[in-house]
Structures are given as structure tokens and as C-alpha cells.
């Protein structure tokens, strides 16, 4: 074997990179609906300033609980009606897209970056490093995420940043576990052994060989968990520990509107519908990605 003459990069394994997914056959059709929904909401989030018909935080107590426009008492001034403080629901749902999507994406990116790093290090070095890191991971995983967020909320007050941090601080452990598992398997493969013999540094092996081979899994997990985070944030709002009003976040809008499901259904219905569509789309996209990229991934 011409070990000396071979640069480690040439030894890269035939991993199915994102672009090189198996051909789209039956059941592999792009999930157009999910992509459209996600794309649509991302656009809405980006263009919230332009699209929003009103200031989402502007109150008008006299106009509280105005029903949607198609109701006899509705007006075109508030197409989807208003909430208990008379704020325009359409504006809040539009701005809420920005807040809720940001919360979901940011949290998951933070968690996956940190978790992947821990998983890579633990899997690469094995031994004591692995044992120590995995115990911390275990401890983290057994801490209920909602409890941590609640504690943070009563300690420093609920806020966008705190919600993102609280969820990410727990969520990373899942990534760490999955990535470490994959790395352990990869480490047994020839191309890693060869790279080591060729004198590649730990950094190089981790970033050039191990990380790319875990990307598929990461992408699937990230997609699946964006929805989960949005739902967790909503639950936190219900417990008074989510992104607090007046910031328009879908979760807190539903939580606020829950006492009016019979008297003013629209207050919780429209943000609820938005959450439903987005989370459903992310979940279905995640399922599709998994079928396509990483059919053997065993994750919830």
C-alpha cells in the first residue's frame, strides 16, 4: 500500500453527501408541500416589516376582540381580528413568524453545534475523555428541559435569549450522543486508520473526515427538532416562562388566547394554525430527509 505517497484527502470515503443523495425514485419525490410552507413562512418572517399591516404591539383597547373580517362584526382594518388588547392579529402572526422561526432555528443551531463538537471529541479520543463527556451528557439528558427553562425564567426573568439558551442547554446532549455513536463506528473504518497513519492531525481528522460523515444525520435531526423547539417554547409560554409579550411569539399568543377559545376563538386559532403548519412541515421534511439521507437513523 503506497501509504507515504497518499494524501489523506484522497482517502475520503464514499459518503453520500447532501448533493449526492440516492436518485429520486418512487417515494423520494421532493416534499413540495412542506418546502412551500416552510419557504412561505421564511419569506413572511424576512419581509415582516413590509407585509405587516400594522404595528404588532400597538394597542387599542376599544377595538379588543374584533372578530376576523368575514364575521358580521369584523372589519378590513383587522383582517384576522384583534386580541384582548386590541392588537392586530395578522400583524402579530406575521411578526410572530420571525420570532418563532428565529427561536427554533437559533436554538437548534446552537445545540447541534455544541452537541456535535462534544460528540466528535468524545468519539475521537474515546477512553476517559469519552467517559467524562458522556456522563455530563447523561446528566443533561435526564434534566427535563421545561424545568430548566422555568428555573431560568424565575431566576433571571423570561426572555427570547433565555428561552433559546434554556432549550439549547438541554438539547445539545441528543446531538452529542448520536454523533458520538456514529464517530465510534467511523473510527473503526479503514480510511480513518489510514489517515492517522498518514500523519493527519486530530483536528484534520475530526473536521475533514468525521464531521462530513455525520452531516446527514445532523441535518435530519436539526430539521426534526426545529418543530420540537417551537412547540416547547409554546409550552413554556403557557407556564409563563416563554418569550414574553408584548413580543409577538406564536406560543405566547396561543397561551394568551386560551381563555377565550369559546368567546374569541380567533385569538388562539390563527397563531395555532401557523404553528401547526410550520411544525408539521418541518417534521415531514425531516422524515423525508431521513428516508433519503440516513434511513437507518434511530431517533425520535
Amino acid at each position: 500500500m503506497p501509504a507515504e505517497s497518499t494524501v489523506p484527502d484522497a482517502l475520503a470515503p464514499p459518503f453520500p453527501a447532501l448533493g449526492a443523495a440516492p436518485p429520486l425514485g418512487r417515494g423520494r419525490r421532493l416534499p413540495f408541500l412542506s418546502l412551500t410552507i416552510i419557504g412561505g413562512f421564511v419569506l413572511v418572517a424576512l419581509l415582516a416589516d413590509v407585509l405587516s399591516p400594522a404595528d404588532p404591539e400597538a394597542q387599542s383597547l376599544r377595538a379588543r376582540f374584533t372578530p376576523p373580517v368575514w364575521d358580521a362584526r369584523g372589519t378590513w382594518a383587522h383582517v384576522l381580528g384583534t386580541d384582548r388588547l386590541g392588537r392586530d392579529l395578522l400583524a402579530r402572526v406575521i411578526w410572530g413568524a420571525r420570532v418563532s422561526l428565529m427561536a427554533g432555528v437559533l436554538t437548534v443551531l446552537l445545540a447541534s453545534a455544541f452537541g456535535a463538537a462534544v460528540g466528535l471529541v468524545a468519539g475521537y479520543y474515546r477512553g476517559r475523555v469519552d467517559a467524562a463527556l458522556m456522563r455530563v451528557t447523561d446528566a443533561t439528558m435526564s434534566f427535563p428541559v421545561i424545568l430548566l427553562a422555568l428555573i431560568l425564567a424565575v431566576t433571571v426573568g423570561p426572555s427570547f435569549t433565555n428561552v433559546v439558551i434554556a432549550i439549547a442547554v438541554i438539547l445539545w446532549a441528543r446531538y452529542a450522543r448520536v454523533v458520538r455513536g456514529q464517530v465510534l463506528t467511523l473510527m473503526e473504518l479503514d480510511f480513518i486508520t489510514q489517515a492517522r497513519i498518514a500523519g493527519a492531525s486530530a483536528w484534520r481528522i475530526i473536521t475533514r473526515h468525521l464531521l462530513p460523515n455525520t452531516l446527514n444525520t445532523l441535518v435530519v435531526l436539526i430539521t426534526l427538532q426545529i418543530g420540537y423547539v417551537i412547540i416547547v417554547e409554546a409550552s413554556l409560554s403557557f407556564l409563563g416562562a416563554g418569550i414574553p409579550p408584548p413580543t409577538p411569539a406564536w406560543g405566547s399568543m396561543i397561551a394568551e388566547g386560551r381563555d377565550f377559545v369559546t368567546s374569541a376563538w380567533w385569538v388562539s386559532f390563527f397563531p395555532g394554525l401557523a404553528i401547526l403548519l410550520v411544525v408539521l412541515a418541518f417534521n415531514l421534511l425531516g422524515d423525508w430527509l431521513r428516508d433519503t439521507l440516513d434511513p437507518k437513523l434511530r431517533q425520535l
Binding site: Q59, L85, V154, G157, P244, P245, P246, E256
Partner: peptide, 23 residues
Amino acid sequence: RAFAEAMAGYWQKIGVKIKLIPV
């Protein structure tokens, strides 16, 4: 909380800058 938000709304109208602190 809704009440605190409403009060903030009134005071903002006379030019007081309100920061709502949920606790």
C-alpha cells in the same frame, strides 16, 4: 400581565418609555 401591558400602553402615549419586565 395583560393589565401591565395595557398600563405600559397608556404611559407610552405620554412619552414615557416603558420596559415591561415579566417576573
